[in-house]
Nucleic acid binder design. Structure first.
Lengths: 198, 198, 198, 198
DNA sequence: TCATAAGCGAGACGGTACGTCGTGTCTTACG
DNA sequence: CGTAAGACACGACGTACCGTCTCGCTTATGA
């Protein structure tokens, strides 16, 4: 896989490229990474293999690009006015996205082991974006006086989305609204507000 | 991949089989799932492809078996005398195992999307075993009066191992002892002991 | 293929061996040499592969033995009282045998290129036996004064059976009684009796 | 083996194909049909297995094509001015070709039993071509008054090449010039000119 | 207006792995 | 002991896919 990832630069993708990536995602969801073939994508899109490889130098690049394209939208920060509402909204959207992209994420994960750049891209696309949202939400909560700034812990800031992703990817119990509610009400809020003055 | 998974039946594996699986694991860690070839395993083991395919009907079956074999031991319940100690120990061993088997788990995850049986095996091997351990630990804590039975929530019982696995598999910040300590002290214990008398 | 051919020594074959060879012949006729497998013979005979290989050290040996067994009978010299009658009888029996064993002979031929011993066995079984018969027939004819001894030519003594075998093996016009009659009446007899005193 | 034989259509073969077939013939002669492997041909030609199988759908097809290519030239009608000279020339070229292609022909023969199309191709390539030549030669002889038209017999027109092929393929006495000379002088010519006025 | 080039579809190509099957050797367990 | 059963190392079979490459054909601009 190409290590410099020039294709992850930005968004000005042609309509044709978007179509190719959509087909890639579709076949990926249907058959999984191994049984996905660039050739099949090309055929289904009535494109030629050269066209595919001109844009994405390898199958892994293609799948990564499809994943990125598939998750590009989303990640708009919630503003419900309360910490609890914001956390629930974050959880909800994480569940939705994780459910949608479970096979794709698994495929990308599988490639991560041997592609240093991929790890970084994955970070940016799925973790860092949420960290920014979470940071904003928590800062707002601090400003509103709902929690103490000291309660925020950098080490496990992604506990909410992380656990939900685990549930979607690894366990066979995909996360539900209940999962999010209980996690927020029984774990996160108690933890964030516990002994507020500590 | 064969759907009935006859090879996941039990443990009376021959020494030869264990050797083949060990070599599989080794090459898997070295090269990743895609670049692992059954033939390479056979050659390294001075076995023949037929021998490999007689035991494991496909490459995916082989990798699954290797993963199971690699994680078969472990999961012995900790007994430190305190809930906090037990949780820390669970976290520590989860980190260790997750770190050890990250590439293998990613490969197995990748196959899960299209193999119903695999999902179940993964459950049993990585989630259910830990649930039993956790149940025991929490029951002991209840018995000791450290927590209230009502504090235990079935929905998110695997929050500790789940988040740690997420950190190992998905994020680029593998979990450390600090991660576990903070998670236990700042999140789990406050949650479990909050409003103890409720 | 074993070069010393111990199995071609003689006829005291057990009933079981004859059965195995018969099955070999049957499958050979059905599927051809390539698609014949020793394993299939063993299975059909409810024998084990070891039993097969104990008797015939290779697939080629097995097929050869089956061919020999299949052609062992026959080749009884004809005595019709006239040269023409004898030649017709030889032709007739050659046609019959060739028709019967076309696939087997083709298979054996194919192996001959790389098995020196096989060539010799083939000679003995299919050519030399007929030469003896022919010699007898011609000697009788000389004795009866039908032909001159000088008319007999060592170089092409096997013209009759040879051409018939060619017709059966190579051309798509298997030899008929007409073929034999014309060959004998229009070619062989004129040649043998031409300018009888030459 | 593919039954429609698209590759037997014509002659506009690329140079590359001819090279592959030449290597096939070479290895075939060296090792025989069984011990010939498509992969070995590919490696020797620095081609890939896919390239081989794209052109010839099976090993049998490949060998057949190689045989056809190897015998494509030849079969140019001789014109020596006399029936005897023409027959000797036909015999000589048959001997040469049969000697050259003995292992290949044996291999092809072996496949013929189970491939209807192959039988036909073999006819066209090895029998019909010679029939045309023989017809021409005999017609010329009739025209020259050397023989009577009635002496020509459709049933055994291929006696000369057929017997020579038998000698090359089956017997262990490959045909020599003597064989041809004796066959022509002592058998064919007497037969053809016998009772000329009949 | 036309040519020169850039992008595209089609698909052949050298590789490499897959999963299957056959050969010939060997071990085990039964009778 | 001979046999049935079948595991085993080896290696070929025929298939599929990867990533590269050439072909023509279309289109789209620039002289």
């Amino acid at each position: 896989m190409s290590e410099d990832m020039p294709e992850s630069s930005g968004c000005p993708w042609s309509e044709r490229e978007a179509e190719l990536l959509a087909i890639t995602l579709e076949l990926l969801r249907e058959h999984g990474y191994d049984r996905l073939s660039v050739e099949a994508v090309a055929i289904k899109a009535k494109a030629s293999k050269a066209t595919m490889y001109r844009r994405w130098p390898s199958k892994a690049d293609l799948v990564l690009a499809a994943f990125i394209e598939g998750t590009r939208q989303s990640a708009v920060p919630p503003r419900t006015g309360s910490l609890r509402g914001d956390l629930l909204e974050i959880g909800r959207s994480t569940c939705e996205q994780a459910r949608e992209h479970t096979p794709t994420m698994r495929a990308v994960l599988n490639e991560m082991s041997h592609s240093p750049g991929l790890q970084a891209v994955m970070q940016e696309k799925f973790v860092l974006q949420r960290k920014l949202v979470l940071d904003g939400v928590l800062a707002d909560a601090v400003e509103r006086g709902e929690i103490d700034a000291a309660a925020i812990n950098e080490e496990i800031f992604d506990l909410l989305p992380g656990y939900l992703v685990f549930r979607a990817l690894v366990s066979d119990r995909p996360p539900t609204e209940d999962t999010v509610r209980i996690l927020v009400d029984d774990v996160l809020l108690p933890s964030l507000t516990a002994r507020q003055g500590r």
